[in-house]
């Protein structure tokens, strides 16, 4: 890559990894093939420190103010927010459906936990997504090894703690293989808290 490496500035606090913010917007009736998905997703920028994160985040629209069907993605630099990416292809995600009004707070708590390495699962975390829909919002956190039950259980436990979710919130774990197969990210095994 010809792009200049992003590094922490002087007196800034480095993060464990560099992260990239992405934005995507889905058009109604548009096919959701991975090709069109890749065309619809735009990089916002990459940061390497806590301070650089805040400079991006403070200027970004909050999920509650997004219109239509849009998503923010925050992924480790070098990992595309697609199940087909080499880092994610054997992985999966915890999916949490939220009633309207909760997404902004939950998204902030989720990404702060991720950036601060609160999940304690080594290099397993790929990134997180908030998807704004008309009737509900969905947040998800992706990890690399769907078959690693100790890791997925630990992520679930930390999610419950950092998100402070209402009782009866539905959490589902779904492998990317299944998401790609049925072309819908948000179905399958349901776990009610």
């Amino acid at each position: 890559s010809k792009r200049k490496a992003v590094v922490p500035g002087l007196a800034e606090h480095p993060l464990q990894y560099n992260y990239t913010f992405w934005y995507s917007r889905r058009t109604l009736g548009c096919p959701t093939s991975s090709q069109s998905y890749e065309q619809n997703i735009k990089q916002i920028g990459t940061f390497a420190s806590v301070e650089q994160f805040w400079r991006f985040y403070s200027h970004m629209v909050r999920p509650r103010d997004l219109t239509g069907h849009s998503d923010f993605h925050l992924f480790t630099e070098g990992i595309k927010p697609m199940g087909e990416d080499d880092a994610s292809k054997n992985g999966g995600k915890w999916i949490i459906r939220l009633r309207k009004g909760l997404a902004s707070r939950c998204w902030e708590n989720l990404i702060l936990a991720m950036l601060g390495e609160q999940f304690m699962v080594g290099e397993e975390i790929c990134g997180a997504v908030v998807s704004v829909h008309f009737q509900e919002d969905i947040i998800s956190i992706w990890n690399k090894t769907a078959s690693d039950q100790a890791t997925t259980a630990r992520i679930w436990d930390m999610l419950r703690r950092v998100l402070n979710l209402p009782p009866n919130t539905i959490m589902e774990y779904k492998t990317h293989t299944d998401s790609i197969k049925d072309n819908s990210s948000f179905r399958n095994t349901k776990i009610t808290l």
Binding site: Q16, L112, A113
Partner: peptide, 21 residues
């Protein structure tokens, strides 16, 4: 290896630090 861990409060405090602004 060592991992760089920050809690929520620390990250929130950095938001208001002069270095961020």
């Amino acid at each position: 290896g060592t991992r760089i861990i920050y809690d929520r409060k620390f990250l929130m405090d950095c938001r208001n630090s002069p270095v961020t602004k």
